[in-house]
Design a protein around this nucleic acid. Structure first.
Lengths: 98, 98
DNA sequence: ATAAAGTACTTTATATATTAAAGTACAATT
DNA sequence: AATTGTACTTTAATATATAAAGTACTTTAT
């Protein structure tokens, strides 16, 4: 197994936007859709599509409720997501520092 | 400018395969097509397409010659490529370690 | 009360990128 | 001379990312 094998990097995480979402989510208890959208500086559509992918593989979970009569979706990284992120960072580090 | 802004990451470099190519090339004086193909564990077609993109933006240069009557293409990271890579790594580090 | 503007998303369409397959131009081997 | 192999490049298929449009409201202004 070569030290420069790009396939070692989890390609669900390795997308600029999803990487930013994951980096944000590992650093907080939970975050709302709007908060994430602002922090990663993207559009509603992009965030919706990409965070869905993270949910599909169970790296992230969501809960929906109403606050002040308005819909609020809150996201949280899962245990699986945390370890996938750690593994990703380790592989990235291997690649860059060879 | 938010600390989780994914657009800070150079998207020419941020592709698993191109990142691996760049990481390899910053660590050597130069490398042949075949050597890179083996180290990053990819197909000829993939390597050809992706390294061309790195050449197109002048992150990498190539020289072609014949060795033992066979074509050999050698690649080398440019000064621009080196600084783009460093900048990429710094932004990545900002994102991950926030 | 109604219309216009705003919020919090989701869905769909379009553009772009990645990967796989096929092709070119040889050299070496059988 | 035909087959196999090497070193790529090009084209085509597939997947991904982004932008645009849509839904279901709520709030504010008229």
């Amino acid at each position: 197994m070569s030290e420069f094998d790009y396939q070692q990097l989890d390609d669900i995480i390795h997308s600029r936007i999803r990487l930013a979402i994951m980096a944000l989510l590992v650093s907080v208890e939970s975050a709302t859709f709007v908060y994430i959208r602002e922090k990663v500086n993207t559009s509603d559509g992009n965030l919706s599509v990409h965070i869905r992918k993270l949910e599909d593989v169970n790296y992230v979970s969501s809960t929906k409720k109403f606050i002040d009569r308005k819909p609020v979706t809150t996201f949280k990284i899962s245990v699986l997501g945390q370890s996938a992120f750690e593994e990703y960072v380790n592989r990235l580090s291997d690649l860059i520092n060879h």
